[in-house]
């Protein structure tokens, strides 16, 4: 670790840098899941989408030499998986949680299958924007390299907030998610709105995968995702289905993930894995504290997880 030269000062620096690096995939996946859940469906399969995105981004970047093509390919492959999920989970008597788990198995299998040839070669990485001046210590310079994907995510979060609040389409999605009956009365096709929301959400999750393979850690291996895709579901609850809160929550989760390695670099090795579990414990704790048998969670889409079928 580069922080060794800085001693204890390296810890906050490493956490700040790790927050940006580790938070970027969380940000995209959680925004994608947020968009999906706002329409009233859960997509647990984003873990498979993330892996598929990471693999296609890496593969396309290696084959074409252009990482931005890779990012696009990641989004498109995500959208394809999303289309399968969106169509299947809206069939009668089909449980969206079960489809999600099947999509994890299928998506990760497909990613490992197609990604086998790309484990060895190194693909062109995304360029980073360097904020540090050349006189600073190398560790500081490394920490201040910011990925354009992180900035993109920073921009999408408020944009999505505005989209839900102030646009016609945002209203449709919220209506379908909160009260499908009202949406149907408005003449909105529930099937189409959910399909598009799930596909767009999966597109974002695919880009989250590209952030893994083309930015940090910047390789393609079968173990590149440590459950970030599944975590997105918890993160969205943590963020109360609010895109801006998704941004803060992603940074928090990314920061918590970098806490373990940062402490390890200054010689604290105890409890490394327990730090990694901190976000999960925190989410569970918050759910236990805020849930109550007498009311549902504030901000939860009304039709979320119910088997409302919309084929209008």
């Amino acid at each position: 670790m580069a922080t060794e030269a800085l001693g204890w000062w390296g810890v906050p620096l490493a956490i700040a840098a790790g927050t940006m690096r580790g938070g970027t995939p969380f940000l995209f996946v959680s925004l994608g899941e947020c968009l999906t859940e706002k329409s009233g469906k859960i997509n647990l399969g984003l873990e498979g989408t993330l892996l598929m995105g990471a693999m296609s981004a890496y593969g396309v970047s290696y084959l074409t030499g252009s990482p931005w093509f890779g990012v696009l390919a990641a989004g498109l492959s995500g959208a394809v998986l999303g289309a399968i999920h969106g169509w299947l989970s809206q069939q009668p008597r089909v449980n969206d949680v079960a489809v999600g788990i099947a999509m994890i198995i299928f998506g990760s299998g497909l990613a490992f299958f197609l990604g086998k040839p790309f484990i060895q070669p190194s693909a062109t990485q995304l360029p980073t924007i360097n904020l540090a001046s050349s006189g600073m210590a190398p560790a500081v310079q490394a920490a201040l390299q910011i990925s354009p994907l992180f900035l993109l995510g920073l921009a999408i979060a408020p944009l999505m907030q505005w989209f839900f609040r102030s646009t016609r389409w945002g209203l449709f999605i919220r209506a379908v998610g909160d009260s499908p009956e009202a949406a149907r009365a408005m003449g909105v096709s529930i099937f189409k709105v959910r399909m598009l929301s799930i596909m767009a959400g999966s597109f974002l999750a695919g880009i989250g995968g590209a952030a893994l393979s083309l930015y940090y850690p910047g390789v393609w291996t079968e173990r590149i995702s440590s459950g970030q895709g599944l975590m997105a579901v918890a993160l969205v609850i943590f963020a109360r289905w609010n895109p801006m809160a998704c941004l803060w929550a992603s940074l928090l989760f990314g920061g918590a993930q970098s806490l373990g390695p940062a402490l390890q670099s200054v010689g604290i090795r105890e409890g490394y894995y327990l730090f990694n579990a901190a976000p999960y414990i925190l989410t569970l704790f918050i759910m236990v504290v805020t849930c109550s048998p007498r009311r549902s969670l504030v901000g939860a889409p009304g039709a979320l997880g119910t088997d409302s079928q919309g084929r209008a």
């Binding site: 599944l230 579901v233 918890a234 999960y280 989410t283 569970l284 849930c291 109550s292 048998p293 997880g305």
Partner: peptide, 11 residues
């Protein structure tokens, strides 16, 4: 506590 069992078991 009305905590969604799918999410809590996932966590």
């Amino acid at each position: 506590r009305a905590v969604n069992e799918t999410i809590s078991s996932l966590l």
